[in-house]
Design a protein around this nucleic acid. Structure first.
Lengths: 282, 282
DNA sequence: AGAGGGCATTCGGGAAAACCGTATGCTGAC
DNA sequence: GTCAGCATACGGTTTTCCCGAATGCCCTCT
């Protein structure tokens, strides 16, 4: 036990925990599986604790492993921060956002961030919610901006793949709209999996007759042509509401809650990252 | 720059910074000077920054080195905490105290600490103020309990060897005493360097006729025998005040301020350590 | 049931790094 | 001017790191 806890070992450990397999982690790290396996074993031996249960399908974290995982991430973050502090390197933050938000709502958020923290380099990548969550869980992304509902991550109807922390940085209002004088049915919905579709399922239930279209924009156009009603986010329908091409259907009380513009990240990341993320809120 | 910041390198770096020489650090670490030198050079190269100025008398920190030093300590502390969290190892805290405090005032402080934080193993070492400060600066001691005056560390008249944080955990009242009916002069003082002597110099000035004795206890005994007056801490004279063997001389207003029972530690140590230390305050 | 694929691990070897003891060059002190 | 103390360069040994190939395991698909 003379040799203790190398940062590289921790990096390997985190990679294995994220990938769930030694092989996957080795690929991600550009190493051979044998090397990663040995490093993990060495780490376990130096700590005197089993970090993984070996199964023929991969590696499952033990309790001690789970304990170490969050702390190891924090320590690696800390090390990174130290390195940056002394090299004067700028901090690079990798943020992902739902494609639908990237164009409309993201710029204002990023403007706030760069005004308050001009010392940052921000990478932005538009992705699907699944990819966002996977990359945040895997550490490829520092945080993700998506739509959600309620107090807990996943309230909109998806299940986060890891223990995520969150912060709401804005709101998105939903409008149930139709063309003036047009049909109110069916409910025109976007493809299953789309956040707005999840919101429609959550808010309006699934009993209404519905027609699935390929995108929010398509649903809006169909609605404008009187083909039914649609539950759409403010940024998609504001112009049409202003011009009168679409009119809000008087929702029953409480039928149109606001979605949260929600920033999520892996719980336990360094405090410095949290500060950065909080600088994105209004 | 493929290989980045090994914890062991940071340990070496901190040791060199503390010792001021590679040789000293090597002795402290149980390594050969050549090894330590190479590690430091490797670290500098991997960071792309010069950490030390090489002088023929030793190593002097550069600005970047000073920046790294505090953060490296913090990171090493963090790593230690992570290791403890997963191995379930108990935390060991090394505390030093002025010899004169160890017997009388330290037990109550430690009782508070172990009542609030039973998960700790506390090492206590009685030392002189010089040793205390040196060991805290060098990292051999986590914190030191000593006497001080005013808002800043060193207000009693010594200069701290590093950037120290502090917390006052109690007070020590000073009494200017003499035997009833005995002489009031000279002022009987303890050896220069002793905290109580510093306090006497600070509070009473140096104009009074004075006689230097070998210890506080000696000064008290001389005072009891009517050989002069002495400025003594409460814990040394309480019994004699109670019995009437010594009586307080009415000090001019504000002449007998209270000393602070002060806990000092190296600024930048991990937050977890701070929590421990705060648990020692009243 | 049997073959095949994905998995972690073991093994042997080669490259890199850590470490040591010694030797060298430097500077300030005596 | 010599000497002590310092950092460092050098050659050699031990340890670590990493790889490719081979092994054994278990699940799955046929």
């Amino acid at each position: 036990m003379l040799t203790c806890m190398d940062l590289r070992q921790l990096q390997n450990f985190v990679a294995v925990a994220a990938a769930g397999t030694v092989t996957g982690a080795a690929n991600a790290l550009g190493l051979a599986p044998a090397s990663v396996s040995e490093q993990v074993r060495r780490l376990e031996h130096s700590l005197g604790v089993a970090l993984f249960e070996r199964t023929p399908r991969g590696m499952r974290l033990t309790d001690a492993g789970a304990t170490l995982l969050t702390r190891a991430r924090g320590l690696l973050d800390h090390a990174d921060e130290v390195r940056r502090a002394v090299t004067g390197g700028r901090r690079r933050v990798r943020i992902g956002a739902l494609e639908m938000l990237a164009a409309i709502r993201l710029p204002a958020v990023l403007r706030r961030l760069s005004a308050r923290r001009p010392d940052l380099d921000v990478d932005v990548r538009p992705l699907t919610r699944q990819s966002l969550l996977a990359e945040v869980a895997g550490g490829t992304l520092d945080a993700a901006l998506l739509l959600d509902l309620g107090e807990r991550v996943g309230g909109l109807g998806f299940t986060p793949p890891a223990d995520l922390d969150h912060l709401d940085v804005g709101e998105v209002r939903l409008w149930l709209v139709a063309a003036p004088g047009g049909a109110r049915e069916p409910l025109l919905v976007s493809p299953s999996g789309c956040s707005i579709r999840l919101a429609a399922d959550q808010v309006l239930g699934t009993r209404l007759p519905r027609r699935e279209l390929t995108s929010i924009a398509t649903a809006r156009e169909w609605a404008k042509q009187g083909m039914g009603s649609a539950l759409l986010p403010d940024f998609a329908v504001d112009p049409d509401l202003a011009s009168g091409a679409l009119v809000p259907l008087d929702p029953e009380s409480g039928q149109a809650p606001e979605l949260a513009l929600r920033l999520v990240w892996l719980r336990g990341r360094e405090p410095a990252l949290r500060d950065v993320l909080y600088a994105m809120s209004a």
